[in-house]
Design a protein around this nucleic acid. Structure first.
Lengths: 111, 111
DNA sequence: TCGATAGTAAACTAAATGGTTAAATATCCG
DNA sequence: CGGATATTTAACCATTTAGTTTACTATCGA
């Protein structure tokens, strides 16, 4: 049984990843679950704006939210990232054989 | 020599990949260079719309265009895909520890 | 119970996106 | 030359996006 979601979800996944604030939220969540307020703190936009970004991430399946009293604990759900990763993997051969230096660069940069 | 473009370009790269028509164009170009008209043929939108999608891909650095008389030959430029790939690679461990080991292996092969 | 806290919803705005059709530009070829 | 071909540009439109502020709901805790 193949996951029917994956093909269609590439739109939403790549779209979610296209905004730097949302990528930053993912990076924050990679260190562990956090509340909406905690996630918003480093960003220079309103809480409502962060709440919307988190909604986009949730719609793309990239986070799971658990209500805990007043607090919504957000948790990274990385599986959809593997779908994007899988799509990109198709094209690895196009940069692998010619761009050794770039590969080294990615190895060492961590970003 | 570190590529200064890469970090900022993640926005444009992921944005370019978020549209199914643009991903299809990339897939077409993976089989070899093609003209705008050739690329447009399988798509049920106007040539002008395809031209705009190609402009988005070019702005993201994902294709290179060479003018050849009347014809613009488009060629896949996969290096920016490796930037997206590199960003996602950070999160491999979150979706599958075994894939993480496999990816490490792939990182090191071919040298 | 009452005030503070956490978060969403609603209403609005400006800009970007994705599409159209029609016109313009430039090249090819008989 | 003059018509066909390749492609972009321009003008336009509807929808989405990303942000704001204000209002609302719900929960916590003294």
């Amino acid at each position: 049984m193949v996951d029917q979601r994956t093909a269609a979800d590439l739109d939403a996944i790549f779209q979610a990843l296209s905004h730097p604030t949302r990528r930053a939220l993912i990076e924050d969540l990679a260190t562990g679950p956090a509340s909406v307020t905690e996630l918003a703190e480093p960003h220079d936009i309103s809480l409502a704006a962060v709440s919307k970004h988190l909604q986009v991430l949730e719609d793309a399946g990239l986070i799971e939210v658990e209500q805990d009293g007043r607090v919504r604990q957000c948790q990274l759900e990385a599986a959809p990232l593997s779908v994007a990763f899988g799509w990109l993997t198709q094209y690895r051969v196009f940069w692998d054989d010619r761009l050794d230096a770039l590969a080294d660069h990615l190895e060492n940069e961590g970003q």
